[in-house]
Write a protein that binds this DNA or RNA. Structure first.
Lengths: 358, 358
DNA sequence: CTTTAGCACTCAGGAAGTTAGAGTGCTAAG
DNA sequence: CTTAGCACTCTAACTTCCTGAGTGCTAAAG
């Protein structure tokens, strides 16, 4: 069946009403809208059609309708008007971000917090690495007879360090030669490419009896493997205010899943694409999210890295608004991460607010 | 009124039963215990006394009794037998810890996770700094014409680094002299002791026109200020399994409070003391914790730092067990943080388990 | 003087029954 | 094609009732 213009208008109205009330919506409520010059009976007929088409669902016979995941999908793809951030909104975001963002380290955590505060949904932020992760250069600083600080400059421009102690003492000469050997042999390699044969070879070359080379190699591998990727989750407790999670069990399951952090890895999957992604209900891979909605934005972050920032909420979520927030903040993050330290958050695509879809 | 031996035994039995069932306990249940050679009527009389003394409470007339906070306090101080970790328990902890603990960085997070998993209560872990935090030594690594990595070795033996970019280029000579100046003038100072006059003086001495000294100084200050102190919270969602938090609102409030992290700062307060602290209900400073129980353990951590690891749960909490876990793990943390890298967790004070207070 | 059995009383919480109202689908008229 | 009207359905909320756990008191027994 074709989706007539009228059906589309009705579907849109239903979705929006349901988004704001979380209650099944009936024909009367829609007919009450002055925009909709139709009687409830007509609407009822249309609603019956929409239900037959699988875009609406009926919890039970004598209840109103709620949108099915497909219904949401159509809404998101075709019906939803983009939520334009109002001046107040951009200002609020800017204020919140500026206040918090001091350094790139805590950027993620802060962004997540801001998002979850603004949307009142749990938010997560993470970085993933897109390309190879390798050491570009080793520097070994000898602090005293027993202590060496290893500094690894990675390909993406970040540096990692580790203080290594050698209780039996370590010779200056060994440290120096080790630097040479590692810079020659262990740079531009991924963690997988470093194998134990190489390490043993280095040990032999160095005449290393105290495991210094092994320690350095293991530090290298763990650094490369751990991948600068970080995860942050905030605002999970917001779930408890939502009517759909009044059931403690449901809430518990979802929270556990989120805290576990596994989904984060799954959620970064729609890779390559940039911009905002919306995943509705069963569109999610993870079982636990099958009746939740996820909105996420990805953005390029420095070298080889990609940032993801996302929001998890009930299927009934104000996708338009959340998507707008996310894309705005993702844009800001990108700029901050590329620019120099002082965060100058621009007034990105701010517009006058015309329709307030709350 | 004196607390007779019999009253003490009854109080103990009530607390323990309540701990495990979360239901008010009646006289019959206590009388059923073969250890207790008394009829329910006698117990009732004693219970009436204990209630009069403020050690028990009655939710309503026809319900059993639950311990009041004072009742718990007496239990914890005088009646509770120390929970000795069984061989299985220590082994389980050791396994969990060993598996996770790779580096001191993630030590906190992992310890918190382990604790919350073992106890099924939310756990937090944090470090606070006790004494001065200063830089012991600066090393500047020049990577290329524009890039310098600054490595700060702190007094507590940890190192921090930052990659600094100078788009206009920076001279080798300046980098070298800057190292000298900073090592001479900026070591052994706390963040407060570094003031802008010093920085300007350094800039003059160096003839620094590109803000290199300022950048390094600001990195220093932020490093010192941020204080290695970190906070980690895990297992909050465990709350939702507990009968006392079936009420979504209660759970929400507490979770919010915990996520906020403010209490962490308050909870570290019983400073100076080491070992395990137990805070019952109203004994907590924070309003939100007035009907929760908190068990926390502090331990010295490297130089100038103190670690705190704690558990938050309902007032009815198995204090004996939780305290045992915490003190064991705190001991382990201390050892790991002092020892060298490979975590060799000893079988600390392991004993045969005689009484299983679950 | 302490312990215990017995008994009347209280009260929360669950089960069953009832009601109100929101919403539907269908039919027939405009 | 739209709409008014109506009979029907079904949930959610509110009663009411009942059960059982637990108490406090009294009086008898040790």
């Amino acid at each position: 069946m074709e989706l007539s213009e009228r059906k589309r208008r009705i579907l849109k109205a239903i979705v929006e009403q349901y988004i704001s009330t979380a209650e099944p919506v009936g024909s009367k409520a829609i007919a009450a809208d002055p925009e909709m010059n139709l009687s409830s009976a007509t609407i009822r007929n249309e609603m019956a059609d929409l239900t037959a088409m699988g875009l609406l669902e009926q919890p039970h016979t004598s209840a109103g309708r709620i949108p099915s995941p497909q219904g949401y999908r159509i809404y998101v793809n075709e019906l939803m008007n983009e939520h334009r951030l109002s001046l107040e909104e951009t200002q609020e975001i800017n204020r919140a971000l500026k206040q918090k963002m001091s350094q790139l380290d805590s950027l993620l955590a802060d962004a997540g917090k801001v998002v979850s505060e603004l949307t009142s949904y749990p938010a997560y932020a993470l970085t993933t690495q897109v390309g190879r992760r390798t050491v570009q250069r080793y520097d070994l600083i000898q602090v005293d007879g027993e202590t060496v600080i290893a500094v690894l400059l990675l390909e993406d421009g970040t540096a990692c360090n580790r203080v290594m102690k050698f209780p039996g003492g370590i010779e200056k000469d060994l440290v120096q030669r080790m630097g040479t050997v590692f810079n020659a042999g262990f740079t531009n390699l991924t963690a997988q490419e470093i194998d134990s044969a190489m390490i043993r070879a280095a040990e032999r070359t160095l005449g290393d009896e105290i495991g210094a080379a092994a320690a350095l190699a293991s530090f290298t591998i763990s650094t490369l493997e751990s991948g600068g990727s970080k995860k942050v989750l905030s605002g999970v407790s917001n779930l408890l205010t939502l009517p759909e999670y009044q059931d403690v069990n449901k809430a518990h399951k979802l929270m556990d899943f989120l805290a576990e952090g596994k989904e984060l890895e799954q959620l970064e999957m729609p890779q390559g694409q940039e911009g905002v992604q919306i995943l509705i209900g069963p569109e999610n891979v993870a079982e636990e999210l099958k009746d939740s909605g996820v909105v996420l934005a990805t953005y390029p972050l420095g070298n080889n890295m990609q940032g993801v920032i996302g929001v998890v909420g009930p299927t009934r979520m104000d996708y338009a608004k959340v998507a707008a927030y996310l894309s705005y903040i993702a844009g800001g993050m990108q700029q901050i991460s590329q620019g120099t330290s002082p965060p100058q958050l621009p007034e990105l695509r701010r517009m006058d607010d015309q329709d307030e879809s709350r």
